[in-house]
Design a binder for these strands. Sequence first.
RNA 1: UCCCCGGUAGCUCAAUGGUAGAGCGUUCGGCUGUUAACCGAAAUGUUGGAAGUUCGAAUCUUCCCCGGGGAGCCA
Length: 433
Amino acid sequence: MTTISIEQAGKYDGQEVTIKGWLYNLRESGKLLFPIFRDGTGIMQGVCALKENPEAFAALKGLTQESSVIVGGKIRAEQRAPGGFEMGVSTIEVLQKVSEATPFPIQLKEHGVDFLLDHRHLWIRTPRSAAILRIRAEAIRAARNYMDEQGYTLTDAPIFTPAACEGTSTLFEVNYIDDQKAYLTQSGQLYGEALAMALGKIYTFGPTFRAEKSKTRRHLTEFWMLEPEAAYAELDDMMALAEGLVSAMVQSVVKNKSRELETLKRNIQKLENIKAPFPRISYDEAIAILHKHGNPAKFGDDIGGDEETIVSSEFDRPVMVHRYPAAIKAFYMQPDAQRPDLALAFDMLAPEGYGEIIGGSQRIHDYDLLVKRLRENNLPEESFQWYLDLRRYGSVPHAGFGLGLERTVAWICGTEHIREVIPFPRMLYRVYP
RNA sequence: UCCCCGGUAGCUCAAUGGUAGAGCGUUCGGCUGUUAACCGAAAUGUUGGAAGUUCGAAUCUUCCCCGGGGAGCCA
């Protein structure tokens, strides 16, 4: 008998098939049982009557949630069944029955955050988690496709890095070989710059680690970041790339994962609007918007979480804020030629209060200026010799950005917290399971 | 690091200083079209920990532990 995936069940109407999966739920009604099976691709209701299949009935009756089962039967269209199809169960093999003494902890009802996170290894079996993780996969696939199509080469930055680049406070220190110290990367950017000088247009995509003690719904200590870097590119080029990338990710999910979005009850219309071009406003204009809403922000202030929400609420798609005061931005950012007190940097703020999903900039390509900035920031020049080399040997204007995968996927999915969009979240005070 | 909130049955929560409860889950029984099924019954507690106030503390006080949300910082 053909083994099918529940996702494809509609194509087998009227046929005898096998499903390999787990018992998701069981409703009993006397001599009639309504098991619900899941196989990782979806859930499907089964029906089993004592009179017709006494053996299967006996095996199924009283079976516990998440017991592993291989079931055979005929698929049929049935309006009363969730999903429109159900299986008339004729055979069932129970591979492992979950003991009544230790029932599956995740019930089909609400649970608290702490409990769910402690049982993340089981929580991921729920339809909601499965939908989110499939959307994450689709977003990654779309992002890589888009970058590849734009002529960017995927390269990988190291995860162990040598000295502290922007101060040790945000870095995880690890014991390297023979008592050497190494640090987990907090950004692949500096390596991306070197790779861009070698290959022209590159992107890195991998895990990133931040030891900051941030306890918010937007933070993880381990998260994934996609970081393009391009030689001979300037700020506007990167904003164009960023909006194209984000549109591609959102539209791909809308197109290929609509069922999952429905599972999450996500407002799909809001996502359908997310198409380039995205609005671009200067930092000065952002401050003006804040004033309009009675926020006292002034030039030189950073735009915090509340401010981001105010600014982004003016738009129905992500907004790019550019040309921030240099004083509040990183040392390597290129100053604006017209206004040297501004950095050629930009952030992309997602709608609906999801905040910053991209931060990027044009980088300083002038050797003397970069040395000056290193000194102003009291950074150890000797650690940056290789980085300075990039300005000694054929330096060119270049730019890049970093896209936070989890923040982006959390926005696409409409989840309350980004911890739901990574299989095993690593957060402050939580590294189990 | 700072501010706020929380910790009671396996889970989600109630109990306004006076006998610790309900729903779900589990167990037993009933039900041939259920939709987190329903109906009946049973078992299940170191109220996060320590000390204190009180005739009496889940409840009030102090300290500690654990977790959550936010600030700062950032993706």
